[in-house]
Simulated assay, not measured.
Amino acid sequence: MTFSICVREPYEDDDGDQQYRFGVAITTRLPAVGVPCPHVNEHGAVATQSLTNERLGSKGIEYLADGLGIEDALQGLLNADDGSASRQLHGVSRDGEFTFSGDECNGWYGHTSGENYTVAGNLLTGEAVVERTAEQYEDLAFGDEPLAKRLIDALGAGQAAGGDKREDLTIQSAAVNVVDTGEDERAYYDNLRVDASEDPIVDLRETYRLAKQGYEDALERYEESEDEDGADDEE
């Protein structure tokens, strides 16, 4: 049904303070995957999928904000969930990773993790989808491009490796969501969705390009307006 990646990127800002980028990207052969499945805040990123229970994601990041470790938070939610055998749940916090694929998920299903990331998928053409998503992120980790762009590229690598196996379902969706604790305001391109498309990753990549361009154009326009106002004040 779905494959997704969750990422943590710690870094120091110009003042030497510890900051984090958290992000999640996801795609599926159903509409509007960005509504119930990806969850992110300044404490972590979580994806809930397979037979999706949205509460596992929303409560998961809420518990992270309350100071729980990610394993305690997510495993505790699964322990209280009667449908946990049909769930996939994975994510990252400031100090850990968590992956879970229930025994009743539909094949191919599985997950992997590495330093600062987790990847999981179900109803895929094979293990290569998860592996290529992870490998692409590892190649791009902490790169010059914004995290949202690199997460979309990681999804693209998984899609190129086969993606979701249900070719009879043509209406698909994808989403990316990023939070950066070192930024005062959130960039327009850090929270994007393509809710219904026959090629959602291509469309998400184009949506990202346009959103980034629009954000940069708006910043430039505001700076020009401030400069003009300053010049008027001096006259």
Rank of each mutant, 00 (worst) to 15 (best):
C37M: 15
E224S: 12
T27P: 08
E71C: 04
Y189G: 08
D95T: 15
D232K: 13
E216G: 01
E216K: 01
A161G: 00
S93E: 01
V35Q: 12
E135C: 04
M1R: 03
P10E: 06
L151V: 09
E145V: 01
S50L: 03
R221N: 12
I171K: 09
R29E: 10
E135W: 01
A160S: 13
E235H: 09
E127N: 14
D232M: 10
H111C: 13
S173T: 07
L51C: 08
E54S: 12
D232C: 00
D153N: 13
E235D: 14
D203T: 07
G230P: 00
Y222E: 15
S84R: 15
Q213P: 00
E54C: 03
G143E: 09
S4E: 05
E220Q: 13
L78R: 10
E145Q: 14
D153Q: 15
L51T: 08
A218G: 01
N41V: 10
R21P: 00
A174D: 08
G126Q: 04
L51S: 11
G121A: 08
L151M: 10
A134I: 05
I70K: 05
L30C: 03
G110D: 08
T48E: 02
Y137M: 14
Y109G: 12
I70M: 05
G60Y: 04
A120H: 10
P200N: 00
L77H: 10
D190P: 00
L147K: 01
T28D: 02
E228S: 11
L78P: 12
P200S: 00
V24L: 05
K59V: 13
V7W: 01
Y222C: 05
V202E: 14
A73D: 05
S93K: 02
A218N: 10
G67M: 02
A154T: 06
E220H: 07
H39I: 02
Y117G: 06
A157V: 04
K59C: 09
A157F: 05
S225D: 15
H39D: 01
A47E: 11
A175K: 05
E220C: 03
A25H: 06
G121D: 09
L151E: 07
P146W: 07
L77A: 06
V202K: 13
Y11C: 13
S225M: 15
L155I: 05
L56M: 06
A65T: 06
S84I: 02
Q19I: 08
A187H: 13
D15C: 06
E224T: 13
D14C: 05
D103G: 12
E131A: 14
A128F: 01
G158C: 03
A148H: 01
D168K: 11
D184H: 07
I70T: 06
A160R: 13
T118A: 14
T99Q: 12
R150V: 03
A211L: 04
G57R: 09
A25P: 01
E12M: 14
E234C: 01
Y188R: 15
H43P: 02
A196I: 06
I152R: 10
E115H: 11
V119S: 06
T112G: 11
P36A: 12
